[in-house]
């Protein structure tokens, strides 16, 4: 996968899990669509693969309908808010402890 300043995320924590292995790694994530007459939204992942030993080097692409893409986006938004709120609560707790 090409990686430059226009790649959506160039550094994401990732966990690779199989029946007999579990590895923490990093990944690149890109959301995009074909330039000409796009027929789907592509959500692309590439796990760092130079040192990962369980899987061959590969990328994965989800081909999403606009509706599916929006569903994912909405879920991501929803959970992002939950994580932020939990973090804020925790921070407030930290402050009250001080």
């Amino acid at each position: 996968m090409k990686v430059n300043a226009y790649t959506t995320l160039d550094l994401v924590d990732a966990v690779v899990k199989g029946h007999d292995f579990e590895t923490e790694s990093m990944a690149v994530v890109n959301a995009t669509a074909e330039r000409d007459d796009p027929d789907c939204v592509r959500l692309q992942f590439e796990l760092d693969n130079m040192t990962e030993t369980h899987l061959p080097a590969h990328t994965e692409t989800l081909e999403l309908t606009p509706e599916q893409a929006r569903t994912i986006a909405a879920d991501l938004e929803k959970h992002a808010v939950r994580v932020e709120e939990a973090h804020d609560t925790q921070s407030a707790g930290d402050r009250s402890d001080a």
Partner: peptide
């Protein structure tokens, strides 16, 4: 800002 950017940028024209 942390890595990547919050906005979705999409692919660029001028790659390559």
């Amino acid at each position: 800002k942390t890595t990547g950017t919050a906005e979705t940028r999409g692919e660029l024209t001028a790659e390559d």
